[in-house]
Design a protein around this nucleic acid. Structure first.
Length: 864
DNA sequence: CTAGGGTTAG
């Protein structure tokens, strides 16, 4: 941490020290306060100006032909300019500017400076600069310089800000003031100029500018938060905060917000409490918004409610942002109804309040997705608010959970129209919507858009001329710069690309992204590596996942959880548990997700005692309260071991009502152990909770089929027809040479179909000789036996295997197949024989889990 | 005329 009085090391000219000594910065305090007070009043007066009024006022502005602007004219013009700035209306600002130019009125410093500010704040630094450059030398005062420095600082041209400051120091009669230092420190608030920022920090401490205005301190706090080398230094930020002589409500808000943004929720609440007790400042809309969001994050409902009543009592209930945070807080605390009440009571809505309530319903799940989509439709119909990527992220999640597809396609259209389909969370949402419906072509297309657009944006950034003058020495520098600027590639971009590739199993693309990660200097980035581990795991390549894991130096809980989960999903429980114990030794604390991985590892291989041990220890030793998912793992474990009545007892003893997931897990066990009676009960429970779940109907119908109860099978099919529930069409796909090949049952559309079927015939003969007997239980009963067998041998997963074998995939590599439904029992058996006759390893990812099939055995132990 | 703070997703 830097010392609070670092050495002064700025290369300042000698006369500068003198100037500072003479500068009357203490006397200024009073003036500043007065200025800002009167300014405040003026702002309020213009708050009520709408576009029309402002337009009219500008048009009616009387610019009589005097040589230079009179005090009254100056006053009026400056007020109008301020209104344009406040409303970010560059259009009207330009109109006013044009009128001034046309009138040939000679503009004084004040007006020219105001024009610089107008262009600066409306994102047009070039025009601001040209006004500054064309100003008469004798009109260019300290305010002009400060406005221009601030313009550079706020428009991503930090080096130019510093250079202009150096130029200012050489001007006789001009003295930098606290406004100027504030802008300078802001310029240094990125990693590149952090060192200069430290020097400025020392300087303002020595000269007393540090306490001359709260803004200087605020800017310093943010500088440390952004930190040197991209690493936040909250401790130093907090020290600056403590050291500030005067703090106003903004200062408190800033510190509270930054603590919250960096995940120090408890500290943020503590600071809020000391603000109440000892600051003498009254919390305002900003404070409440921030702290209510903290309550949402950590689900601190009691404080959240308290703050809600405060909001009402203090008359802030009509504030849009406060309302948004309340909507979000109630939703995140699980009280969607209360959230809705706040939402309905708001006088106005913006994209955030809509998104917050929609996300609330989506998060709640259990059929509430429909209400979320209804609200989304309302929002679109009203038309005053346009959805953004956050909105789509939630809406697409809702789409993925619903059977109707028309709506999803409309949403997809909207994302294209608004040019958001290549934004990470939107693109991934689209990919998973299509992937879940088995529309792999569409899923792949959406992914490719994501993949290519993100590549292009990176290339554009590299070509950007303004980055070239920054004198970057290495590619790492460039990336840090890009990441900081929030454009182009960041570790987040990679993470979202990787999760997209993983969800559709495109390992080839995943490998390409991996190469890009390394090439662009993110090879040691924790977030990118965590995403790589998940991607390789989800694509069935556990060796590559382990390789990434082993090469990582900096592992966090997500890293460990990802690798443990990877092995657990593949049925390698021993390795998963080994890693779990290794993790505990390195003193990384497991979280709730880690325990889901651990319990599912146990359940995949039937380690009952081990599972119970962890289930009790998670609560007792780690204070983690088991969630639905944890209970589901335990039900799975008991069910798999055939302890069906124990499983039912366990479900009944749960502290909350079991959801569809738990019952679906149980139904799976009933199917394997052929217990129709309990299975029917489980199915009934699921359909009570999710009446449109096609998977349940299928599972139940399979259960009846396995017992030969064809009458009941038919009844189920009829019911599905009545309810218009369609079974997902089974399909399998495989990636060969970066291209996805997809197959349906009996599919002959592939260009190499003839060769595929020849290979299948050849395989059939070979494996029958080894003892394979087709299991026709998996085919409809009213077909002749020979036909059944033929039908069976045209299952999509078998077609994919045959295609892999005739393709030139390198031999040592396993054949990786993906299936949208559960793999069929006969295919599973046949594949085991195929691994024996071909010596190849087959990895199948089905809807539920992974099957690593090698030398005639499968990692799932024939239980799935 | 020049300076600072808030909300939505994974």
């Amino acid at each position: 941490m830097p010392s609070l009085s670092p050495n002064l090391c700025l290369p300042l000219p000698s006369h500068f020290h003198l100037k500072i000594m003479n500068s009357p910065n203490n006397k200024n305090n009073k003036n500043i306060n007065q200025t800002s007070l009167s300014l405040h009043n003026k702002q309020n007066k213009f708050n009520s100006f709408n576009f029309k009024q402002l337009n009219k006022a500008i048009s009616n502005l009387n610019l009589t032909q005097t040589q230079s602007a009179t005090p009254t004219q100056t006053h009026n013009i400056s007020l109008l300019l301020k209104s344009c700035i406040r409303t970010q209306n560059l259009q009207l600002g330009k109109l006013l500017h044009r009128k001034l130019t046309e009138s040939q009125l000679e503009l004084n410093s004040l007006l020219l400076n105001s024009l610089i500010t107008l262009y600066s704040k409306c994102g047009d630094p070039q025009t601001a600069l040209s006004i500054f450059q064309n100003m008469d030398k004798n009109k260019r005062n300290i305010v002009s310089y400060t406005s221009m420095i601030s313009c550079f600082a706020n428009n991503g041209m930090e080096s130019k800000a510093l250079l202009l400051f150096l130029e200012l120091l050489l001007k006789d009669g001009l003295y930098p003031n606290e406004y100027c230092f504030t802008a300078l420190i802001r310029s240094c608030s990125n990693s590149k100029f952090f060192e200069i920022g430290l020097a400025l920090f020392g300087f303002v401490l020595k000269t007393g500018y540090f306490n001359s205005h709260v803004c200087v301190g605020c800017e310093l706090i943010d500088m440390f938060v952004k930190g040197g080398g991209g690493c936040a230094d909250l401790e130093s930020a907090h020290m600056v905060f403590d050291k500030m002589r005067e703090k106003n409500v903004v200062t408190w808000n800033l510190m509270i917000t930054r603590l919250a943004q960096f995940g120090y929720h408890g500290d943020a609440i503590d600071l809020f409490l000391s603000m109440l007790v000892s600051s003498g400042c009254t919390p305002d809309r900003f404070t409440l918004t921030s702290i209510i969001s903290v309550c949402a994050e950590i689900q601190f409902l009691s404080l959240g409610k308290e703050l809600h009543s405060w909001v009402i009592r203090s008359g802030l209930a009509m504030d849009l942002c406060v309302g948004c945070s309340l909507v979000d807080m109630y939703a995140k605390c699980g009280l969607v109804q209360d959230s809705r009440k706040v939402f309905d009571g708001m006088s106005d809505h913006n994209v955030m309040s809509w998104t917050a309530i929609i996300a609330g319903y989506v998060r709640g799940g259990g059929g509430q997705e429909r209400e979320a989509l209804r609200l989304f439709s309302d929002m679109m119909l009203q038309g005053s608010v346009s959805p953004n990527c956050f909105t789509f992220s939630s809406v697409l999640k809702a789409c993925a959970s619903l059977p109707d597809f028309v709506f999803s396609e409309q949403v997809h259209g909207q994302t294209i129209k608004l040019d958001l389909s290549a934004v990470g969370c939107v693109g991934n949402g689209l990919v998973s919507v299509y992937a879940r419906s088995g529309k792999m072509e569409c899923a792949c297309k959406c992914f490719d858009v994501l993949f290519e657009k993100n590549l292009i944006s990176r290339n554009m950034v590299v070509d950007d001329a303004s980055l070239k003058d920054l004198n970057l020495n290495s590619e790492q520098d460039l990336n840090r710069r890009i990441e900081y600027a929030g454009i182009g590639v960041s570790s987040f971009t990679y993470a979202s690309l990787l999760s997209g590739a993983a969800s559709i199993g495109r390992i080839g693309k995943g490998e390409q992204i991996h190469a890009m990660v390394v090439k662009t200097g993110f090879g040691t980035n924790q977030c990118a590596n965590n995403a790589l581990i998940s991607m390789y795991s989800k694509c069935g390549n556990k060796e590559a996942a382990l390789q990434v894991f082993n090469d990582m130096e900096d592992r966090n809980i997500i890293t460990w959880t990802s690798i443990i989960n990877g092995f657990a999903k593949h049925g390698f429980a021993t390795k998963a548990l080994e890693l779990f114990y290794e993790m505990l030794e390195t003193c990384v604390k497991p979280n709730d997700v880690t325990y889901i991985a651990v319990l599912s590892a146990c359940s995949h291989v039937g380690l009952i005692d081990e599972a119970w041990k962890h289930f009790t220890s998670m609560r007792n030793n780690c204070g983690i309260v088991p969630r639905m998912e944890h209970y589901a793992c335990m039900v799975d474990l008991l069910g798999r071991s055939g302890l069906l009545s124990e499983a039912i007892e366990f479900i009944n003893s749960m502290p909350f009502d079991a959801d569809a997931l738990v019952w679906r897990t149980f139904l799976g066990s009933c199917r394997v152990h052929r217990n129709t009676e309990l299975g029917e009960h489980a199915a009934k429970m699921i359909l009570e909770r999710e009446p449109h779940d096609p998977a349940t109907y299928i599972l139940l119908s399979n259960l009846y089929a396995s017992e030969g109860r064809w009458y009941d099978v038919a009844a189920i099919r009829k019911r599905m027809k009545q309810k218009q529930i369609t079974k997902e069409t089974g399909s399998s796909w495989i990636e060969v040479e970066n291209q996805v090949h997809k197959f349906y049952v009996g599919d002959t559309s592939h260009p190499k179909a003839q060769k595929i079927y020849e290979k299948l015939d050849e395989l059939a003969v070979k494996i029958k000789n080894m003892g394979y007997v087709p299991n026709t239980d998996f085919v409809l009963h009213d077909v002749e036996d020979e036909q059944k067998e033929q039908y069976l041998f045209q299952h999509s997963e078998k077609l994919a295997v045959a295609f892999a074998l005739i393709s030139s995939t390198p031999k040592p590599k396993p054949i990786r197949i993906f299936k949208n439904l559960r793999v069929c029992g006969d295919c599973h058996m046949a594949m085991k024989y195929i691994t024996m006759v071909t010596g190849r390893e087959i990895v199948v990812r089905d809807a539920n889990r992974f099957h690593h099939i090698k030398d005639g055995t499968c990692s799932c132990n024939d239980y799935w």
